[in-house]
Structures are given as C-alpha cells and as structure tokens.
C-alpha cells in the first residue's frame, strides 16, 4: 500500500472581484461578484514508503493547497486522499500523530526555551512517555549534530541552527511522512547544503517518506529522486529526477560580453537568444554540444565577461507545460 494515495483531487476557490473605484467598492458590498479559480484540478499520484518526492511548481500553481489537503487543514471539493490508509478529513487528529510538518516560514519552536525543552514539550503534545522522549532526543542529537547547542535558547541560535532544530523537532514523534514546505528558504548556500545532508541522512536511516516543496532547484536536484510538477492546478510531470535532468535540464545559457562579434549562426546545438553589439546570449543544447566546446566556440581570448547558468525552473516548467499541450 502506498503511503500517500491521491486520486482526482480537486479544489476550487472563489475570489471576490471588485469593480473599479468608489462605485465599484460600494457595489461589491451589496452585490459581490466572484471569480472561480480551480486551484487544484483532478490531481492524482501515489507515493511509496521511503520515497523523497519533490512537489514543485510556480507560485499559485496549487502546491500549498494540495499540501494543506494532504495534512487535513483544508477539505477537498472532490477526490480521494489516503495518507497511511487514513482520510485526513475524517481522521485529522489520528493522522497528526503519524506525520510531521515543517512550514519554512512559520516557526513552531518556543524561542526562549532551549531545543531540549522544546523537544520535551512537543513530545508531550504527541503523548509520548518521558523515556520515549529522552530516547528520541538522543537519536535526534546524533542525527542532526545538535550537541553543541541543545541547551542554548532558540533565540540565540543562528538561522541555520534554528531550522535544523525545527526539522529535528518535527521528527520527535517518529513520523512516517514528513511534509516540508520551503525548508531552506532564506538560508545561505553552505547552510542549505548542510540541511540537505541531514534530510538525506534522516531519510536513509529512518526510512521517513519525504514530501518536499521548494523553489530551490538545488533542494530538488540534490534530495529527490522523484519530481511531481504542478502548474495551474494540474500535474504536468510525474517522473524521476534522472529523466527530468535528461530531457529537460540539459540546456545551459551563456551570457557573454565579447571583444568582437562572433558568428554562431549555423552552429549545431546553439540557439542565439540575444545578439546586440558585443553582448551575446546563447542557449546551448547539451545533447548536441557539450559546454566546453561551446565555450571554445566563443574563443576564450575574446571574452571580456561571461555568465553561465541553468535554464530557470519556471522556464522549464512552462516548456513542459507547452509540450504537454
């Protein structure tokens, strides 16, 4: 049995539409007009135990709405959800014992308490016995390397340390599934990498299923073997990371300032995006031309400044969406 089973999930929202100006405002009080938005439209997917799934999409794609329905915060209009065999709508409390959540921008820890006290408090929330809590604290201390600051008040910790504690705390009840919503937001790259390694370790040692939403491509690439992309309320891709990389993340953009103009018109695997004056922006298709050859074409001696980047995720997604159409 899959740990997460989602079938034909749908949720529509009504948003008030206000007319322009004062007249419109007055009208909207008496005769409100609504606009229907299909936030989630017939979404289906299954997740197996121990999987690390990335659930991504642009803003407004329906990610948060879906996660809220999975965790029992919001009720769907249509469709079935089974998390660990339970219906989040009917068994919210029972399910809460089995899952953990970390919403990146919302902090749950008591800031004036130490992580240790926080663990004890949240352990109590999950009705854990004292010896169970102690045992779990030892495990989490080792897993997340918290020894150094486990007895320092949370407010005195750095952001990275604090997030580590938030994630550790979300595991106090040994959840079978961990829902992470933007866990590395606002963190610097070194700390991000740090957090990622802990999440990976946790998944490996505890077999916790991880359901992750993030805007950070690094998070997704480094952590998840499976990717579900949602856009405008529907799933546009549900595939392994390997396939995604192979089929879609194989383009690089080179933005170069040259000493003189270079003609790349007929080069295979090179698409010219912008060619103005001495500024050249090209897209390299890695399937047809590898990156070092592309740079060689530009002639390193003639380069004043160069910037090489991946295709932004938004673009990949809209590409996928267009192809899907």
């Amino acid at each position: 049995m899959s740990v997460i089973e989602v079938k034909n999930l749908s949720k529509t929202f009504k948003s008030k539409v206000k007319g322009k100006g004062l007249k419109g405002s007055i009208k909207s009080i008496f005769k409100p007009k609504y606009k229907t938005i299909k936030a989630v439209n017939k979404v289906s997917f299954n997740v197996e135990k121990g999987e690390m799934v990335a659930f991504i999409g642009p803003n407004g794609a329906g990610k948060s709405t879906t996660i809220k329905m999975l965790t029992g915060i919001l009720y769907p209009d249509n469709g079935d959800i089974k998390i660990l065999g339970l219906d989040p709508r009917k068994n919210r409390k029972k399910l809460a014992y089995e899952i953990g959540t970390v919403f990146g921008q919302k902090e749950q820890l008591w800031t004036h308490l130490t992580p240790y006290d926080n663990f004890k408090f949240f352990g109590a929330i999950y009705d854990m016995k004292d010896y169970e809590i102690e045992k779990k604290i030892e495990e989490l201390k080792a897993l997340f390397e918290l020894d150094e600051f486990i007895n320092t008040p949370v407010k005195s910790l750095s952001l990275g340390q604090r997030i580590r504690c938030e994630i550790a705390c979300s595991l106090i009840n040994d959840p079978k599934i961990l829902f992470l919503d933007e866990p590395t937001i606002g963190l610097d790259p070194v700390v991000k990498e740090n957090i990622r390694s802990f999440i990976k370790r946790m998944n490996k040692e505890c077999h916790t299923t991880v359901f992750l939403t993030s805007h950070d491509v690094g998070d997704i690439e480094k952590l998840c073997k499976r990717v579900i992309i949602i856009n405008n309320g529907t799933v546009v891709l549900d595939d392994t990371m390997e396939n995604l990389k192979y089929h879609y993340l194989n383009k690089k953009i080179i933005d170069a300032k040259m000493k003189e103009k270079i003609n790349l018109d007929d080069e295979k695997g090179i698409k010219i995006l912008k060619d103005k004056g001495y500024n050249l922006k090209i897209e390299v298709d890695l399937k047809e031309k590898n990156i070092s050859d592309a740079i060689k074409l530009l002639d390193p001696d003639k380069i004043i400044d160069i910037n090489i980047s991946n295709t932004p995720l938004e673009e990949i997604i809209s590409d996928i969406y267009k192809k899907d159409k």
């Binding site: 965790t71 929330i125 999950y126």
Partner: peptide
Amino acid sequence: LDAFLVMPK
C-alpha cells in the same frame, strides 16, 4: 489556525 490543525491536539 493551520499550525494548530496539524497538531494532534
């Protein structure tokens, strides 16, 4: 209230 809804209390 979302934060309270994910707690088993």
